[in-house]
Design a protein around this nucleic acid. Structure first.
Lengths: 360, 360
DNA sequence: TGTTGACCTTCAAACGTTTGAATAGTAGAA
DNA sequence: TTCTACTATTCAAACGTTTGAAGGTCAACA
């Protein structure tokens, strides 16, 4: 067997091994149209040799020649945020049939990493980029760099259409309203709200939804029962924030029969806080979360929550990039689009009719 | 500006734009040693033009020429398994300083995807591969294909040293023992155990650890209190299995004051099952999990568990591949290595001294 | 005998980089 | 003047593919 420089088997190695030219070998192995002309036994011989030598075509050489990478970069701002994975799954599902490979990157909440990965995506000639931007990152200059290179980009979970970027996200406002209406129908009237930090994009629209639904139902939201989480990027911060806020609520001595938390982790923090104070969920107080992540399902009591259709959102984002890539090859670019996915109420054990809560 | 074919700015574009040759431009932009010889203003001019044109070097051309991809494939069998992410984080951390880029791939529990991603890793000329094999996958023929291509491979969370693959995993046996001893010291003597399915690699050693520690402490494990989860690959299956087993335990009418579950999700299923039966945790029954994943922390009560040092494990795996890659460039390969990371008991609220449990 | 077409295979150029070797130009030393 | 040494830049080949164009061979037909 020929001694190869790179340690990898190449077309040349196969050509030498079975006495044909590199061209023929390439034609056969890549199943090019021309391969119909190649004699049956030649084809067989070449394929067998390739198999036996453990040949894998070199993606670099191939992409270089074809000027296509068949790759889409997926850039998650924080992959450990539980809600990323279902999105990633959806994206993969959407990319697969179109023959694009996901290039998954996790910025681990580090801004510098995010930038360098974005750069890497460009160097790798990703034909499109999907950003999962669950947390805030104010600067979009790099994203514009992406656009400058004629690479279509879609962002999931933030609305950046004003910056010219197609966006897929849940209808946060409708979600907030859903939570309020659910509690209202159960009979709750004194509802505490734990809002997300200002720096989290979802916070404002969810709060807006809560407010408008409350107004519509004739519920007065006591400002003293509305708290806001501090802005920390740690994945556990929601839980701790919810816990801390609940302690404050309990210490205040105010009455409330339900709590709406900005997300599931916060809701779990609320449950913990109530439990510390000897308040039972849902008998004494109901709790509603947002997102529908695993911990909300497996906790006891299971958390009633507003579900985001994360998989579908990822799928749609993938389909959009793919379509946009194809479009650009035909020299026509679309205007940025926006999709607000409908949220869905998932009723579990953490909400019930308001009971008689004893307060000493 | 020159009209380029590929839609991307190339060295040639820059060369034309500022009147130097491609070589000079390359030398300057890649900061090659020769660039010391290049006149200051030439350098400036070239860099400025590159910047202005939005040049990103083509990773494909570069890797092709250099015959190095600076890439390590990370192949997770199921990224939605919560315990993958900390490992991935650790790996990234270990790869970064060595200048290798992670190529993250998620097989989504699908065997076929796993195979095709592994193939892709080879086509992308990954210089090393790290497999996170949290669930069983019996065939290692593809892994041997990897070895055949002279690509070092490390597996996290399974012992495949007998197949010649370096392995990093937690000391499951020690972990099982830790759980028993903790309960023993609290005073528990009648302990139920929910074992993992046979197809899950960790199951056997954890059970062995439980058995030996029980024997050492003089605890007799009632076989009727030892149940086994069915083999389902769904991420929720642990929870549902734990719940189902607990219902069976409760229905049996047997006495027990504590439950050891094979992992955290199962433990949460146990808590749910106990709650259904009106059994309080930890007052009436203690529960211990394994892994220390997020849901164990944020549930109420927080689950006492055996922590795997996932980050460190990933870090070590990364360091091993990197070292092995460098070694192969010097034509010397190491024998496969094994590291059993020490588990650690994390005490939370789900365990306490056995109380007087009423049974009618 | 020459021509045609069908069939099978190869040539050679290109993709965008990097880099050892080569080419000039300048200047100081022998 | 010639030699050496240094600076500043370029040539050209190579990495492993793909593919339009061209090269063969062979049989059949005119």
């Amino acid at each position: 067997m020929a001694q190869r420089k790179s340690g990898h088997v190449t077309l040349m190695d196969i050509a030498r091994a079975c006495g044909f030219s590199v061209s023929t070998v390439s034609i056969v192995l890549s199943e090019a149209p021309l391969s119909r002309n190649v004699a049956e036994k030649t084809r067989h011989r070449i394929k067998a040799t390739a198999q036996q030598l453990g040949y894998y075509p070199d993606a670099y050489a191939r992409s270089l020649r074809l000027r296509r990478s068949q790759t889409v970069g997926i850039l998650a701002y924080d992959l450990s945020d539980l809600y990323c994975i279902p999105i990633v799954r959806g994206i993969q599902e959407g990319l697969q049939p179109a023959g694009y490979l996901p290039l998954l990157m996790d910025a681990s909440t580090r801004r510098a990493l995010f930038d360098s990965y974005l750069q890497m995506a460009l160097e790798r000639r990703a034909e499109g980029v999907i950003v999962i931007g669950n947390w805030v990152f104010d600067e979009t200059n790099l994203l514009s760099d992406v656009e400058k290179n004629n690479v279509p980009i879609v962002i999931v979970s933030r609305d950046l259409t004003t910056n010219g970027v197609s966006s897929v996200l849940v209808d946060n406002q409708a979600g907030g309203a859903l939570a309020v209406r659910h509690l209202y129908e159960l009979g709750h009237r004194r509802i505490a709200v734990i809002r997300g930090p200002d720096e989290m994009f979802d916070s404002a629209p969810r709060w807006a939804g809560v407010q408008s639904a409350a107004a519509q139902s004739g519920i007065r939201l006591d400002p003293r029962l509305v708290l806001k989480l501090p802005n920390v990027v740690d994945p556990m911060s929601g839980f701790e924030g919810g816990l801390e806020c609940t302690r404050r609520l309990e210490a205040s001595g105010l009455d409330f029969t339900a709590v709406i938390a900005v997300d599931d982790l916060t809701a779990l923090g609320v449950v913990r806080g109530l439990s510390e104070a000897g308040v039972r969920v849902p008998e004494d107080c109901s709790v509603v979360g947002f997102d529908d992540l695993l911990p909300a399902t497996v906790a006891t009591p299971g958390i009633t929550t507003i579900r985001q259709p994360l998989g579908e959102m990822g799928l749609l984002a993938a389909e959009w990039v793919v379509k946009e890539i194809e479009a650009r090859y035909q020299k026509k670019a679309h205007a940025p689009r926006l999709h607000l996915a409908p949220p869905q109420l998932v009723t579990r054990m953490s909400t019930a009719k308001p009971g008689r809560r004893m307060r000493d």
